[in-house]
């Protein structure tokens, strides 16, 4: 089976892309290396959301809160305790997943919009704590200059660390989505009633999905700390959670790599349009409306569809011949 996976074209493509990405620091300038690292962090965050929204059908409206919890945990452990930095980095995702478990346990009792609204409230509570608990979190200023282990200091080592961690996470996510659990998650998305009827514990599956997704969001938060060396309350703010949604929408909900592409577009927009005009959110809003009207499946979504259609056509002509 492993041999089969290794031979598939998508695997070969992924390996090729990964190889190019490994070589990037030798070719490109520091700025582009940094931009790529930002894309990976945001892409991981968006893909973890997509795990729940695209595949799980849950209205995870405040995913950013868990990203922030991961980042804050890492930042606080490194700056406020004498523990080694690595422990802080490892504790971030665990704390995020635990928060996900607690918040999720409340949310899964409800469905759809109520789920989302409850999550916004609980997430906002975390945000307001980070904003107001000055003695612990420094309030709106956030925590800056978080020291990293020697192995990760400097932009190129940080890039490699982020690249490796994100790749491992994506591989894990891919395996999770391919597993029976992933299939169940999609089944729950498509028809919760029927799943309940055939004996699937819908809430438990959703909760497990939330814990997994928030774990990866926490990983993204920790990687942000590795990259920027700082955390601030805006990471927990609700607007960021909606931006993650935009990334998923840009790239495509029902594709695996879609959100990563969406993150790339978003970061590019923010960086390049943002340096050209201060009104870049206006442009983002217009792009978003155009997407909702004309490309609701995202960029990868449309490619995937036409690609499938072409393949079907090719197959059918093969039969005719």
């Amino acid at each position: 089976m492993v041999k089969n996976i290794l031979r598939t074209p998508s695997f070969l493509w992924t390996a090729a892309v990964l190889l190019v990405l490994l070589l990037v620091p030798f070719i490109a300038g520091r700025f582009y290396v940094y931009i790529l690292a930002v894309i990976f962090v945001w892409g991981l965050l968006a893909m973890s959301l997509n795990l729940l929204v695209g595949h799980g059908g849950a209205y995870q409206f405040h995913h950013g809160a868990f990203y922030g919890v991961g980042a804050y945990t890492a930042g606080l452990i490194i700056t406020k305790t004498a523990l080694p930095a690595w422990i802080g980095l490892c504790a971030g995702p665990v704390a995020a997943a635990f928060t996900g478990l607690v918040v999720g346990a409340f949310c899964v009792r409800l469905n759809k919009l109520y789920f989302g609204m409850l999550q916004i409230s609980l997430g906002s509570l975390i945000w307001i704590l980070a904003l107001r608990w000055y003695s612990l979190t420094n309030g709106d200023d956030g925590i800056h200059g978080i020291p990293m282990p020697d192995l990760l200091s400097g932009s190129v080592p940080a890039y490699y660390f982020i690249l490796i961690v994100v790749s491992v996470c994506l591989a894990l996510m891919y395996l999770i989505l391919k597993s029976p659990f992933g299939a169940t998650l999609r089944a729950v998305r498509d028809n919760p009633q029927r799943c309940q009827a055939v004996g699937i514990n819908v809430r438990r599956h959703q909760l497990l999905g939330i814990v997994i997704a928030t774990f990866f969001a926490g990983v993204a938060g920790v990687l942000f700390v590795v990259l920027e060396g700082s955390v601030f309350p805006d990471m927990l703010f609700w607007v960021l959670s909606l931006e993650i949604f935009i990334m998923c929408l840009l790239g495509g909900w029902f594709t695996f790599f879609g959100p990563m592409l969406g993150a790339a577009i978003m970061v590019a927009l923010r960086t390049f349009v943002g340096s050209y005009t201060e009104y870049w959110t206006l442009i983002l809003g217009v792009v978003l409306i155009l997407l909702i009207f004309f490309l609701p499946d995202g960029i990868m979504g449309i490619n995937f569809r036409t690609w499938l259609r072409n393949r079907e056509r090719r197959r059918s002509t093969d039969v005719v011949r």
């Binding site: 949604f245 959110t281 206006l282 983002l284 809003g285 978003l288």
Partner: peptide
């Protein structure tokens, strides 16, 4: 609903 929500978010940005 999700698309409607995202539309209002786009409106907010604009």
């Amino acid at each position: 609903h999700l698309m409607l929500l995202l539309f209002t978010f786009a409106l907010m940005l604009i």
